[in-house]
Design a protein around this nucleic acid. Structure first.
Length: 120
DNA sequence: TAGGTGACGGACC
DNA sequence: CGGTCCGCCACCT
C-alpha cells in the first residue's frame, strides 16, 4: 500500500509537535510535502492504533476545534482529555484556543518527505 | 465500476 | 459569529 509511507511521514512530523502545542491537518500535510491532502492526514491518524506514543491529539482542524464524530468511537473525547491534561482549555463542544497554542516548526522540518511521489 | 462518505480547508453569505 | 457550498482525495460499499 502506497499510503504506508505517507502514514509514516505523518507520524514523523506529528511526533515533533511539542507538548502543549497544536498543529492543523493541513499544516502537517504541507510539512510532508502533500499540500492539499489534509484529509489524508486525518485518515493516517485514524489508522493509528491507540494508545500510541505519537502525540496525535495535538493535531486539530483549521477551525480550531476537535472533530467530534461518532465514527471516532470515543477517540474525540479521549483527545479532549489529553489536551486538557496538557493545559489546553478545550470547551465541551471541542473548541480550543488554536492561535495561542500554534506550533511553529523550525525551518527544515518540511524536508522530511519533500519527494512525495504520492497524492493520486 | 460508480457513487457516497469523511479526524479537511477555504470561500461565501 | 454561524451555516452552506464546493474542491479535494482515499476508503468503503
Amino acid at each position: 500500500m502506497a499510503s504506508e509511507g505517507f502514514d509514516q511521514r505523518v507520524y514523523a512530523v506529528v511526533a515533533l509537535i511539542p507538548r502543549g502545542q497544536l498543529a492543523t491537518y493541513g499544516q502537517v500535510a504541507e510539512l510532508i510535502g502533500a499540500w492539499g491532502c489534509a484529509r489524508q492526514v486525518g485518515w493516517a491518524l485514524r489508522r493509528l492504533p491507540l494508545p500510541s506514543p505519537i502525540p496525535w491529539q495535538r493535531v486539530v482542524n483549521a477551525r480550531g476545534c476537535i472533530a467530534m464524530s461518532p465514527g471516532r468511537e470515543g477517540s474525540d473525547w479521549m483527545q479532549r482529555e489529553l489536551l486538557l491534561a496538557e493545559g489546553i482549555a478545550v470547551s465541551p463542544d471541542g473548541r480550543l484556543p488554536l492561535a495561542r497554542h500554534r506550533w511553529r516548526p523550525e525551518p527544515g522540518v518540511g524536508l522530511i518527505g519533500q519527494d512525495r511521489g504520492f497524492r493520486g
